[in-house]
């Protein structure tokens, strides 16, 4: 890395560069060197190696490995576990991201228009973000418990049959989604609240004077467009975080029952660190990275189309 920077740098002879400028450039290189070395060692190099591993049959514990071309990738698309895992991740994301975004937006607007208890509500909804997810997942496991859990006890009071929340393959993904939503609403809420308070009050007054009679009209004219950048940001983050679901699955279901809660990161973890099939897991990781890249790319595209607000 250091070589790369040195090569890209002052070798080109330009007489215009004064001694002071050269000194400044040298100081800058020295200051950024540790960060760049670590960036290379812990991020760029491993990513390159993962891509490389993806083309091998490397397994930890065996001495050598062979390059197998795209074999891992072709195997991936016939691997029922992996396909199941991709599908489950998609379903989980499709539930958690939209609900946690709209719920947060709605709650933020309610809190913003209410003058009492603002900080209490903000705290209450934000608390799950600051809590250890593994620990709170354990609490949810108790709440969801089919026989002794309070949720089913409550349902029983109303004469409703309680499902076997985390224990049945039919309901496990939805139960995990509930925990996911519970955990992420507060984060989005805080971002939306910040976005709402940043809207100038004169814009609402202008909307009144311009004849926006109902709250709905003012929301369409001012609130929604002004929240645009925040919404885009919250959407990207919510989707990425949902794709990265792991903690609750590892703690509560281990992908079960019957692979009904296999998700992407959990499958990667199983293949790579439990079965130690590094090559195969690397190919999965590349797919995971590709998903992130596509999501980020989409965000940039939408952002580019948006106005440059002054």
């Amino acid at each position: 890395m250091a070589d790369a920077i040195a090569a890209a740098l002052p070798v080109v002879r330009k007489p215009a560069r004064s001694a002071a400028e050269r000194q400044e450039a040298r100081a800058a290189l020295v200051l950024s060197l540790p960060a760049m070395v670590l960036l290379f060692v812990f991020i760029l190099l491993p990513v390159a190696v993962v891509i490389l591993f993806g083309f091998t049959d490397y397994e930890l514990g065996y001495a050598g490995f062979r390059f197998v071309g795209f074999d891992n990738y072709t195997e991936l698309f016939t691997d029922r576990t992996f396909r199941r895992s991709l599908w489950n991740t998609t379903v989980y994301t499709a539930i958690v991201a939209p609900i946690s975004i709209f719920m947060a937006l709605g709650l933020a607007m309610l809190i913003e228009s209410e003058n009492i208890g603002r900080s209490f509500f903000r705290t209450a909804y934000f608390l799950p973000v600051a809590s250890l997810l593994v620990a709170m997942a354990t609490v949810w496991q108790y709440l969801f418990h089919p026989t002794i859990g309070p949720i089913n006890a409550l349902l029983a009071l109303g004469g409703l049959p309680g499902p076997n929340w985390l224990g049945a393959s039919m309901s496990v993904l939805y139960s995990l989604s509930i925990i996911g939503i519970w955990q992420s609403v507060g984060f989005n809420l805080v971002l939306f609240l910040a976005g709402l308070t940043a809207i100038p009050r004169e814009l609402y007054q202008a909307a009144h004077v311009d004849g926006a009679r109902s709250a709905f009209d003012r929301c369409r004219l001012v609130t929604w467009p002004m929240l645009g950048p925040t919404t885009l940001f919250v959407t990207t983050i919510s989707i990425i975080n949902a794709v990265k679901v792991f903690e609750t699955v590892k703690t509560l279901t281990e992908g079960g029952p019957n692979k009904a809660s296999e998700v992407l990161l959990f499958t990667i973890y199983q293949e790579g660190f439990v079965y130690l099939k590094v090559g195969y897991a690397s190919a999965m990781t590349v797919v995971f990275l590709a998903i992130l890249v596509v999501l980020m790319f989409l965000q940039y595209r939408v952002q580019d189309k948006q106005v440059h607000y002054s």
């Binding site: 100038p200 004169e202 202008a206 311009d210 926006a212 009679r213 001012v222 467009p225 607000y309 002054s310």
Partner: peptide, 21 residues
């Protein structure tokens, strides 16, 4: 009457133009 019904126009100090329009 609410503001919308008064047919009174106002120019604001910050102009309050809708930035997305």
């Amino acid at each position: 009457m609410p503001a919308a019904d008064r047919n009174i126009a106002m120019v604001f100090q910050s102009y309050a133009l809708y930035p997305h329009l």
